[in-house]
């Protein structure tokens, strides 16, 4: 127990938790926007891969780091456009299309990576984002290193959460978007286009997911390697449910989840880790996600029109 306590009061632990949470926050917000508008986006896992790849490739090719983030967003948005076209105006199964998009985006990344770098054995590196120390604030004990000594992309993740929350709950656009996921016929009666709203949400949300993927290559690590997303996208879908489809709660559960992840990594180095096989620790994030889904299953208010295609003039 003392081992756990010592980990919990160390600043490096909380700094790691916030760092691990950052890509999850981007991707969870992206999925949340899609689902609020009524589209379950199972392309998330592949879109994170394409974001990680495209962002890294752009920087490797000479672009600035922020340029790489932009490229990642556009790459994600492009796959979002495809996902949106097939599921919104054509109303195809969101499950099937989403899994197809995940396979397409993942294999596209791998194919392009192999084409661009045919003969590499160890993945080449780029110079990733460095930490920005916020003056004064970063000197607060415990809180400072955790919150105010992170890379700019982490600050962007939290900024993004505030922006998404404000747009969804304080603007007419947000109201229309949420209504498209609750009662699309009412939106249409207002003279707004459900198709346009849902398409916009899926395209923008997919862009955010890709930025979450790019965090892995441009901030957390400095190279792109296969299997690096490793189920994070699926975990984000669970986080949306656990966060009850609200941006603020989504950030909170992402950080909580990341804290558990950071804890299991550190526990592996303690006497506990010597007894328990490391696979058990690696399993924890997935087990935790399932538990989160079970806890929230009966409580959360799912957007009423989630996964229900809308065809104008049809009842």
């Amino acid at each position: 127990m003392t081992a756990i306590w010592e980990i919990l009061i160390s600043a490096s632990f909380w700094a790691a938790a916030i760092r691990i949470a950052s890509p999850l926050i981007f991707a969870t917000l992206g999925e949340l926007i899609c689902e609020r508008a009524g589209v379950l986006n199972l392309g998330i896992e592949g879109i994170m891969v394409i974001g990680a790849f495209a962002g890294w490739m752009a920087v490797y090719g000479g672009m600035s780091l922020w340029g790489g983030v932009g490229v990642a967003f556009l790459a994600g948005a492009a796959f979002g456009l495809l996902q949106g076209l097939l599921t919104v105006p054509f109303g195809l199964s969101q499950h099937v299309v989403g899994l197809g998009i995940t396979l397409l985006a993942t294999s596209t990344s791998y194919y392009a990576y192999r084409l661009a770098l045919p003969e590499v054995t160890s993945p080449p590196k780029i110079e990733p984002f460095q930490n920005w120390e916020i003056p004064f604030l970063s000197e607060i004990p415990l809180l400072g290193p955790a919150l105010f000594s992170q890379t700019p992309l982490t600050y962007a993740a939290f900024g993004c959460a505030i922006a998404v929350s404000v747009v969804l709950w304080r603007t007419p656009l947000g109201l229309a978007l949420r209504a498209a996921g609750e009662n699309p016929a009412a939106v249409e009666a207002q003279g707004l286009s459900v198709t346009a709203l849902r398409m916009g949400a899926v395209i923008f949300g997919s862009g955010l997911m890709a930025v979450g993927g790019a965090f892995l290559t441009l901030s957390a690590f400095s190279s792109f390697f296969f299997e690096m997303v490793n189920g994070r996208g699926w975990i984000c879908i669970a986080l949306v449910v656990f966060g009850a489809w609200r941006p603020g709660k989504a950030v909170l559960v992402a950080v909580l989840f990341a804290a558990f992840d950071a804890l299991q990594i550190r526990l592996q180095q303690t006497p506990v880790g010597a007894v328990v096989p490391y696979q058990v620790f690696l399993m924890l994030p997935y087990v935790l996600s399932i538990l989160a889904l079970i806890v929230m299953a009966r409580r959360a208010e799912v957007p009423a029109a989630l996964m229900v295609p809308y065809n104008k003039g049809e009842r």
Binding site: L42, H95, W234, I235, I290, L293, A297
Partner: peptide, 12 residues
């Protein structure tokens, strides 16, 4: 319990 099976089967 009404837990969506897509994500749970994936995580398994």
């Amino acid at each position: 319990l009404g837990v969506d099976e897509v994500v749970t089967t994936l995580l398994f």
